[in-house]
Nucleic acid binder design. Structure first.
Length: 927
RNA sequence: GGGCUGGUAGAUCAGCGGAAGAUCGCUACCUUGGCAUGGUAGAGGCCUCGGGUUCAAUUCCCGAUCAGUCCA
């Protein structure tokens, strides 16, 4: 256990604390109050600060943030700028969920030095885990700022550790005017993300204001420290990871009934005005409701309707109010609080460049956005989201960057609102149709149907219920609807793919890192090397000029020559810094051995094509940003010999005009023949200098980054490049494609590949116009004319066939054999298709006494039977006739009693078919 | 990255193996002093594309593509 990690904390002993065990939950805590028995956390203690602020001076967000950062600056910490809320430097999380996330994984692992040490920061974070609770509890937020001071200690240098951290916390709280005897520190061992350590929660007045984590353990199979079933060992580096909740500090300083009233009072005010609700916090009776609600909600789980109902009941009891009356007051206010919170969340998300989408972080943005729209609709408030977001931006002048991006934000919000409106409209129709269908069967809309509609069409059950009600169908759904949907998904998919590592991984680990020279001498293609090892058709060399696949760029090909033996290199990969060359072995076995001297030859043409496409990708990215806006972000890229493609985040389709513009700008950059710059920089330094735009192409591992500058595009990139843009040659954008909502793919070719692509397209034009014997320039109008004419002819053809059928029918009816009052038409032709037979049959059917058997020998045999209304009443069925005939020609058929068609491949049976049908007809009709 | 749903007339959709439909919109005419409206007639479909199964595919199967949606 982690208990021993607390033993070296001397601060409590030296400062008159008492170590106690909470009489309610049993947790260990420290306090200066000898008489205290409970730990201070929910549910053991309830809020005492509402109406009675913890701190001496009420502060807003900006004031509190500044106070905190200044406090730690004065105590030797360096203030650093916030990181984006979208964690672009991480590939394991989408959103920044804590201040320490800024420094994971490379700073915390000790690989890369921190931007400053010790440092202080106020990091905006987004957590969507408790979405349901936001607005209800009075304290939950999706977006909050984690104020923090961090220390990165190493075994060589310790700045400070546990005692000083707790002392600073005590000092901060005291300086803000908190009653220090009310503060409790709860022992709360922490583990997460492969690390663990001692941690204390800082509680005042029933509110958790901060958590102080002392991260000094890492997960390890051979570790000896057991934390929650996993084994850990000590790290060389040990880190102070604190988290002070800015919003909670503000709340504690004001003692308002809810955190929302403290954090964004103007937004809440504005929303209540729009909704026509009075939110009169000056009225003590009214304020008491929310205070009581916050207290009860502080000690229970409020997700789900059942829990909410229980909360309402408790609150109503405590203040002596009717539950319905309470609900009437609380429900709209909870929505307003949630809207205020969600729109702030969107302000950060969109302001930091998230594009709403149906995948990844974009989906999270859309989720929040749609929840907000729904709640606004519930309140009957009809204002664009962008107006509320604009209020937040005005309210947070500390974030001027959001004003710069507001135009894009506004457009995105408008598009998303329209999109959701359409989705709901579409969904409502589907619901109503289904509801009516089930109602006709005397059933109610089943749950499965409701779930499917949510899953496939995004219509939440609340909306379904509402829509069904409009057509007079009542729909019920259980409280745990969303978890049922989640269960359905977990049943569906559970296949985890096996990780395909390299087969000889263990052998590679013993080899030295391959010296790679393709950066130092990018133009050299021939080299000598010593073979370090071989496995099957894989060869490892001491050095190489071959580029291994990576960064979306395919591997180099070429040859390895050892004496008189020559092998083609068909693939090159790198594992943990060791480059593996895969050879194409035509003989039985590889005739290269360990220790051999070989000559390597890189396929220059292929390498050049890759380099052109890689540099072109940076150029196109830059051009796209110039044309489409600064929000565009690379979501993936691939470079091959003939093509390259770049996926960029963008909230609407790229138009042809925009493509043309991007293409033009890209080619101008080529023509300017700018030098491509390379720079090797320390990771943190690079991030500080160039921002996270560096990680367009993903997050390369390691301490130092290779920075590639092409024009105004600056990226961390490990690929091979042209040394100047002119070498790239022409860039031709070939097509765009939407691979996901919010992600557009550009496909293009550069250099020789571009010429080839253009020539190929030209060929298509030439070939097409040659077929029509026209000039390519008039291809579009000509094709249009041809298509129109073709449609006309098609129609005319049909009309003529009908007329012909009519004419033939008259003749056939004249020649018909009489069986009583019935006339029997039998006709065998060649070359008539099933359609013309059927048309003739339809004509014949106008005579209610007619019976027809029409056969045609074409592509086998086609047969149609028509039985007039009066003959049908005699029990003659066209379907039966066709079945008989079709069997005779080895096929099948069917249809309705009056008209049926069929056929078969065997033409020799045609006479037999006819005879059988005629016999059957005569038999039936004459009886 | 995975799952689900859908592409049929200008729009919204029905049909789901054997004659391509409805409603709105459009055009013309009739009704009216004019308009709202009502009536009559008509135009408008490579049933998304490419394979397969079948005597026969808008319909079933596979693939592509476009769109929607849920989840990691």
């Amino acid at each position: 256990m982690l208990d021993e990690e607390y033993e070296d904390i001397t601060y409590f002993k030296e400062n008159g604390f008492f170590e106690k065990e909470c009489t309610k939950c049993g947790n260990i805590f420290w306090t200066r109050d000898e008489k205290r028995e409970t730990c201070g956390d929910a549910p053991c203690d309830i809020y005492t600060f509402i109406g009675k602020p913890i701190f001496s001076k009420p502060m807003n967000l900006a004031e509190m943030r500044e106070y905190f950062l200044n406090f730690f600056e004065e105590r030797g910490h360096t203030r650093i700028d916030r990181y984006p809320v979208v964690a672009r430097w991480r590939d394991d999380i989408y959103l920044t969920i804590a201040s320490i996330a800024d420094f994971q994984p490379f700073v915390t692992s000790g690989l890369v030095p921190p931007p400053a040490n010790p440092l202080t920061i106020s990091q905006p974070c987004i957590r969507l885990n408790d979405l349901d609770s936001v607005g209800r509890t009075g304290r939950h937020l999706t977006t909050f700022e984690m104020m923090a001071h961090h220390v990165f200690n190493s075994k060589d240098k310790e700045i400070y550790w546990k005692d000083k951290t707790i002392a600073l916390c005590d000092e901060l709280l005291t300086s803000l005017g908190a009653d220090i005897t009310e503060v409790t520190y709860i022992k709360s061992p922490w583990a997460g993300g492969g690390n663990a350590g001692a941690s204390v929660e800082v509680m005042v007045g029933g509110l958790e204001l901060a958590t102080l984590v002392f991260m000094n353990l890492k997960e390890s199979k051979t570790g000896t420290i057991d934390v929650k079933g996993k084994m850990y060992e000590r790290m060389d580096s040990y880190i102070v990871d604190t988290g002070y909740g800015l919003e909670r500090f503000v709340w504690a300083s004001q003692g308002t009934p809810t955190i929302y009233d403290a954090v964004f009072p103007t937004i809440v005010q504005e929303l209540t005005n729009l909704a026509g609700i009075d939110h009169e916090l000056n009225n003590p009776e009214y304020a008491k409701i929310f205070a009581s609600n916050a207290q009860f909600a502080g000690v229970m789980d409020v997700s789900g309707n059942a829990n909410l109902l229980e909360l309402r009941r408790q609150v109503a009891d405590s203040i002596g109010m009717d539950v319905d009356e309470l609900n009437r007051i609380m429900d709209p206010m909870e929505k307003i609080f949630a809207i205020a919170d969600h729109t702030r969340c969107l302000t950060f998300m969109l302001g930091d460049g998230i594009i709403p989408s149906n995948v990844k972080s974009g989906y999270l943005a859309r989720l929040v956005l749609r929840r907000t729209i729904r709640m606004l609709a519930d309140l009957g408030v009809n204002v664009p989201l962008s107006e509320i977001v604009a209020l937040h931006i005005d309210n947070m002048p500390e974030y001027p960057e959001f004003e710069d991006t507001f135009k894009v934000t506004e457009e995105i919000l408008a598009l998303e609102e329209e999109k959701y409106r359409q989705t709901i409209e579409r969904g409502r129709k589907i619901i109503q149709k289904a509801a009516v269908r089930y109602q006709e069967k005397g059933e109610s809309l089943p749950l499965e149907e409701l779930m499917e509609i949510y899953d496939s069409h995004g219509i939440p059950p609340e909306v379904s219920k509402e829509a069904a009600k409009e057509v007079g169908v009542t729909v019920e759904f259980p409280d745990n609807f969303y978890s049922l949907v989640a269960d359905m998904h977990s049943e569906a998919g559970d296949k985890d793919e096996s990780i395909t590592g390299f087969k000889y991984m263990d052998k590679i680990e013993r080899l030295p890192l391959t010296k790679r020279f393709y950066y130092d001498e990018p133009e050299r293609m021939e080299f000598e090397a010593v073979v370090l090892d071989t496995f099957e058709d894989f060869v490892v060399l001491d050095n190489t000029y071959f580029y291994p696949e990576g960064g979306g760029q395919e591997a180099d090909n070429g040859m390895l020559m050892a004496g008189t033996f020559v092998y083609d290199v068909i693939d090159v990969q790198m594992y943990n810094g060791v480059v593996i060359h895969k050879l194409n072995i035509t003989d039985k076995e590889l005739l290269i051995n360990r220790g051999d001297m070989i000559i390597g030859q890189v396929d220059k043409k292929r390498r050049m094509a890759h380099s052109r496409h890689h540099t072109a990708t940076h150029i196109v990215n830059d051009a796209a940003r110039k044309v489409l806006g600064n929000h565009i972000w690379q979501a993936g890229a691939q470079k091959t010999e003939n093509r390259a493609r770049l996926d960029i985040s963008h909230y609407k389709h790229i138009t042809q005009d925009e493509i043309n513009e991007i293409e033009m700008i890209a080619n101008k950059m080529v023509m300017e023949n700018k030098k491509v710059h390379f720079e090797s920089l320390d990771r943190t330094e690079a991030e500080q200098k160039y921002g996270f735009g560096l990680y367009q192409g993903g997050i390369p591992p390691g301490k130092t980054l290779r920075i590639v500058k092409v024009g105004s595009d600056i990226e961390a990139c490990g690929g091979t490049h042209c040394l100047s843009t002119g070498v790239v040659g022409p860039i031709k954008i070939l097509k765009t494609e939407r691979i996901q909502d919010g992600v557009e793919r550009l496909e293009y070719a550069a250099g020789e590949a571009a010429i080839a692509a253009v020539q190929e397209m030209e060929g298509l034009l030439r070939d097409s116009s040659e077929i029509l014997s026209i000039q390519p320039e008039i291809l579009p109008p000509t094709v249009e004319r041809f298509f129109d004419e073709w449609k006309e002819l098609q129609k005319e053809n049909e009309k003529l066939k009908e007329e012909l059928a009519g004419a033939r029918t008259i003749k056939m009816l004249q020649n018909a054999e009489k069986i009583g009052e019935f006339s029997l038409v039998v006709n065998v032709t060649k070359g008539d298709g099933i359609d013309s037979l059927r048309m003739a049959a339809i004509e014949i059917l106008k005579d209610e006494n007619a019976v027809a058997v029409l056969l045609s020998e074409t592509d086998g045999v086609k047969a149609v039977a028509a039985v007039g209304k009066n003959a049908v009443t005699k029990g003659l069925k066209a379907g039966d006739l066709v079945k008989m005939m079709s069997q005779a020609v080895g096929g099948g058929g069917g249809g309705k009693p009056d008209l049926a068609m069929g056929g078969g491949p065997d033409a020799s049976g045609i006479e037999k078919a006819k005879a059988e049908a005629v016999a059957k007809i005569k038999e039936t009709l004459s009886s």
